[in-house]
Amino acid sequence: MEWSGAVSLGAMTQRITRDEVVHVARLARLSLSDAEIDEFTGQLGDILEHAADIEALDVGDVEPTSHPLPMVNVLRPDELRPALDRDLLLSQAPAAEDGQFRVPPILGEEP
């Protein structure tokens, strides 16, 4: 499973590298200064360190708790509900045109 190719809990000396932080920041379109990259590399390392403590335990018998509530199959009937007023919604957007949301050019932008 590759939840994130960039983060490996296996590295013992350094939990996360500076390059990995830069990569993840780029994927999240975050623009970080050099100082921030250093700061977050340390902070993320601490978080991964904490996760590693748990990793050391044998949790083979413990059910994963991605969802804390013991609930499944929460479904709704296939019934129509009223739509939102378009003009009201578009009035909340930074830019609109012809009843549509107007967004900056999609390709070519880098953080």
Binding site: L80, R81, A83, L84, R86, L89, L90, G99, F101
Partner: peptide, 18 residues
Amino acid sequence: FCGCENKFSHIPNTLICP
């Protein structure tokens, strides 16, 4: 995931909700 109508419409952004 919501009760908006599932159909094609030529009028943009009329089948939407939060």
